[in-house]
Design a protein around this nucleic acid. Structure first.
Lengths: 353, 353
DNA sequence: TTGAAAGCGATACCAT
DNA sequence: ATGGTATCGCTTTCAA
């Protein structure tokens, strides 16, 4: 039972919150001493510390964040920025997971997590100043994109520590973290080649962002490594959406592929839908490998063989990188690439690994 | 091109941010006047305003958030709290959408959005004090749950404006917003009844939270309204997950239902999977209505007839309610219930409406 | 070990 | 219309 009636919570206007000074008065010490106790500094005598802590817990005192931030020049807030041209942010389970991973890691480190969705130009114009404003955010994680250099340059040039999530095309020198997209695509192609596939097609993502480009590069390298040749007709460009996969797979069929590496599970799901409509059997007539290994990969028929990205770990690592920057802005820019792995399910037939 | 080299961004340590005072000095006015200009107050003469605005835009000055928050006792931050026992937060697309809706609405109102995932008891203990600390958050939206009264009472008793997202069981007097779950379930049952179904079963959600309970109540009322009787054997309790739906539908089959109202799309997807395995055809052998109408509902075979919740609008309305509270804490607690609608697709057969 | 006092950078009231 | 100044609640030297 909550057990508190409505009139009680109206008292709000009358109960102003306590301050260090007041706690100090109650404990018969100065505000400085209370501050030391609150911040667990060592130079406080046992008896005083006990006395103060008792009063703090009795009164439920908690320091005022704004005052603390102002005095210490630290807000303990980390922001995640999703630029506008990241399509369908919350449609794609990838972003949900990313958000979850970063939020958890942020909280785990006693920071507060803020999310900025720059979904319209109007919102973008209003939010960017707030994001880059001093005193509110200690550091930013920015989802990498194709074109949003306005934002990125503002952040890179600004005085705020940042980490870019995903290799920023054309700016490999910046501080970023990514998963190994090239390797992931190679793993997929290797798997298909080992199964004896000879005409391995791909549905790539948009090529103006690194996951799109890198997975295509990996696909091509994978073909070469396996003694297969690159055929332009077997390369179709999707847009990371289910609809995109649905349409792209249609185009490919004319060229008789016996397997398709599809650069995201979402596109793979769309492709499976199309293939089912056309009565083309997966994996009997055609083998499919997806990319992401998010929950939907297991809920389609057949279950998707796919590339697993360590998204939660990715979030944790991104936060760690950022904290390093926050604590010492002189550490040089760093690039961190996480490994991925192949998850074999039912969309390729024979299970080998 | 970002076009700024690495050494430039290391200057950070040397470029301290500007203050009102400094801008004032540059413009030959006092800090008070600059403050008035920044806050677009009317009592500033044209020439002075122009002069100051010019300097502000030239220097890129932006007020310090912490100082502003401290002085004005307003942080312009709104938090969304997801208690621990909300299962599988980001597995369920519902929560992604909710987050998106609230984040967008928050930004739209020039507030900053913070997300608190109380995913472990440890994190919960660390975060709750921060959430309820004065000076950092102007208001909270709390996802309603079954058991988390500790948190809820802390917030309700605290001095922080809040809105509960979802009717809090046993506390109808609190400030909350919900969708009409009872009506939604009735819509589903009515639809099935109109199609001539006589043995309409249900897979409910967990009954200790309102969406679970209310949708079951609506199901029962719907049966009665249509002259059908309530049969306990036709009621199975799931847990809002795909796995739950998968298992629950199995139990129901013994009792020969000709239709099932399933209290979430996720459970419906699990049920469809099970039915497919058993070679039971939907909608020929059995009709299905889901609940939520999130993207996956359209990506299963057959596409789900379901109840659509206005989640984005829900987020907007929640933020609006909260802002009302923030701006005047004396407005009485309010309960807002949004309407839902039936979306007819392919999982029930004959299209009537 | 403890206290006094000077900031931090805004707001907002009071003068002029 | 503009400026002066107290204030918000904490951190952080500096003395004692």
């Amino acid at each position: 039972m909550i057990g508190i009636s409505w009139e009680r919570s109206q008292e709000r206007n009358f109960m102003k919150s306590l301050t260090l000074e007041e706690i100090g008065k109650m404990a018969g010490v100065s505000r400085s001493t209370v501050s030391r106790v609150v911040n667990k500094e060592s130079n406080v005598s046992e008896p005083v510390r006990d006395r103060v802590e008792k009063i703090i817990s009795e009164t439920g005192y908690s320091p005022n964040s704004a005052a603390k931030a102002l005095a210490s020049q630290r807000s303990y807030v980390i922001g995640l920025v999703i630029p506008r041209n990241v399509e369908a942010f919350f449609e794609d389970p990838y972003f949900s997971r990313l958000t979850q991973g970063i939020a958890q890691a942020t909280n785990h480190n006693d920071y507060t997590f803020s999310l900025f969705l720059l979904n319209t130009p109007e919102v973008e114009n209003r939010i960017i100043p707030r994001i880059t404003r001093p005193g509110f955010i200690d550091g930013l994680i920015v989802q990498s994109t194709s074109a949003d250099d306005k934002l990125l340059s503002k952040i890179v040039n600004g005085n705020i520590p940042y980490v870019i999530a995903g290799r920023p095309l054309g700016h490999d020198e910046l501080n970023y973290i990514d998963v190994n997209n090239i390797d992931g695509a190679k793993l997929a192609v290797n798997h298909l080649a080992k199964l004896g596939k000879k005409r391995i097609a791909t549905i790539s993502g948009t090529l103006d962002i690194s996951p799109g480009l890198d997975r295509k590069i990996g696909y091509q390298q994978g073909l070469i490594n396996n003694g297969l040749s690159i055929e332009e007709d077997l390369i179709s460009v999707g847009d990371f959406t289910q609809e995109g996969g649905y349409h792209a797979v249609g185009q490919l069929l004319e060229h008789k592929p016996d397997a398709v590496f599809i650069a995201s599970d979402q596109m793979a799901i769309g492709a499976l839908r199309r293939l089912k409509e056309l009565n083309i059997s997966v994996p009997k007539d055609i083998a499919i490998v997806g990319y992401d290994d998010l929950p939907p990969a297991q809920y389609v028929d057949p279950e998707l063989t796919t590339i697993r990205q360590p998204i939660l770990r990715f979030g944790q690592a991104a936060v760690n990188m950022l904290l390093k920057k926050i604590n010492d802005n002189n550490v040089p820019a760093e690039q961190l690439i996480l490994d991925v792995e192949l998850v074999v399910r039912d969309s390729c037939g024979g299970k080998i690994n």
